[in-house]
């Protein structure tokens, strides 16, 4: 499972990253509280390249390099191939950041930040739900339609 970004319909608006940030760190999706009171940190960012843009989010690679490289075992790939970080175990050594070909994983003080497909959120990941133009889609392994 992963979120696929279709650059042909990406508006570059960045709502995905705003909703991502507000969806984590205990803000429970409350954007105002996250941005006015807290330090919201998105788990994915937009890439702008020439006239194109897309959400650069975790591909949850099969045989993920970050999981292989993790020095603490904080990064683990569970069933359905989703790569999670156990923020309690991570020591922020950034080895995973160094080996992620997409540059997906974000530096953090106590632990690195990465997409967890909003596993505590009912329904779709926050980014997918927030995209106003259907440019993000949650796809399962092997699914193409």
């Amino acid at each position: 499972m992963k979120v696929v970004s279709y650059s042909e319909y990406c508006l570059g608006c960045g709502l995905c990253r705003i909703h991502c940030a507000a969806g984590h760190d205990g803000y429970n999706g409350n954007i105002l509280k996250a941005y006015k009171r807290g330090t919201p940190r998105p788990r994915a960012d937009l890439i702008f390249h020439q006239d194109q843009s897309w959400l650069n989010t975790c591909q949850h690679c099969p045989d993920a390099p970050c999981v292989n490289a993790c020095i603490t075992g904080a990064l683990q790939q569970y069933d359905r191939g989703v790569v999670y970080i156990d923020e309690e175990i991570c020591v922020s050594c950034y080895t995973c950041i160094m080996v992620c070909p997409y540059g997906h994983i974000f530096p953090g003080e106590q632990a690195v930040l990465k997409c967890d497909l909003c596993r505590e959120r009912p329904g779709q990941p926050a980014c997918v739900a927030a995209c106003p133009n259907g440019a993000l889609r949650l796809v399962n392994e092997g699914e193409t339609a």
């Binding site: 508006l11 608006c13 960045g14 105002l32 941005y35 006015k36």
Partner: peptide
């Protein structure tokens, strides 16, 4: 009070 400076208005 509500604006979070996210820049969506600017880029849209």
């Amino acid at each position: 009070e509500r604006c979070i400076g996210c820049g969506v208005c600017i880029n849209q």
